[in-house]
């Protein structure tokens, strides 16, 4: 068995900002409400995120997706074990836990003007994006989510099937000479 691959394995574009495929990520969708989500976060070992927030601890991120949905983002091989742990912790609580590591992929957009790449493709207000916040929105014609793991760095999550579209879109927006100069 060889390694799992995203739709754009090792893709990288260097324009006025750099766009890279970060490789397969472990992901788990957790649906539930109230106390159930508190338990889930505890089992995943990460603080329960507030509305639209992403929390992180020990290489595991936990993102608020909607009032009754969380997304664990972790190393690809870890997902089944974490999912099992969460499922066990939730016991008979009404919930849904599913490993969805292959549903989505994540691109990294970095560089001094990385924000401009995103400004060209999303109606979301990039200036209003706070560190630790995940903004679910659209990027051109595809759904996605954007967050800032650190200054001048954005991570963009999209569905696997549009991975190539997203990479081409972000690369096109980062083309040298097309700086917005804001």
């Amino acid at each position: 068995m060889s390694d799992p691959v995203t739709a754009t394995p090792d893709a990288r574009y260097e324009g006025f900002a750099t766009v890279t495929d970060t490789g397969p990520r472990g992901m788990i969708t957790i649906r539930g409400e109230g106390e159930t989500l508190v338990k889930a976060a505890k089992a995943a070992g990460v603080d329960l995120p507030d509305t639209r927030a992403v929390t992180a601890k020990g290489g595991v991120q936990l993102a608020w997706m909607s009032p009754d949905e969380l997304l664990v983002i972790c190393d690809y091989p870890e997902a089944p074990a974490i999912a099992a742990k969460v499922e066990k912790a939730l016991g008979k609580d009404h919930s849904l836990v599913a490993v969805v590591s292959d549903v989505r992929q994540v691109f990294r957009v970095e560089g001094a003007n990385a924000d401009e790449v995103l400004r060209k493709v999303t109606p979301a207000n990039i200036d209003a994006l706070a560190p630790g916040e995940m903004r679910r929105t659209r990027l051109a014609q595809a759904a996605g989510a954007i967050w800032m793991p650190e200054a001048d760095v954005y991570e963009v999550m999209c569905f696997r099937s549009v991975g190539r579209y997203m990479f081409d879109l972000l690369s096109g927006a980062a083309r040298p000479g097309s700086e917005l100069g804001l």
Binding site: T51, R52, S66, P67, P123, A124, R135, R136, T137, R138
Partner: peptide, 11 residues
């Protein structure tokens, strides 16, 4: 009202 985002019509 569910996530607090002032969403653009295209979203």
């Amino acid at each position: 009202p569910c996530c607090g985002i002032a969403a653009d019509e295209t979203e």
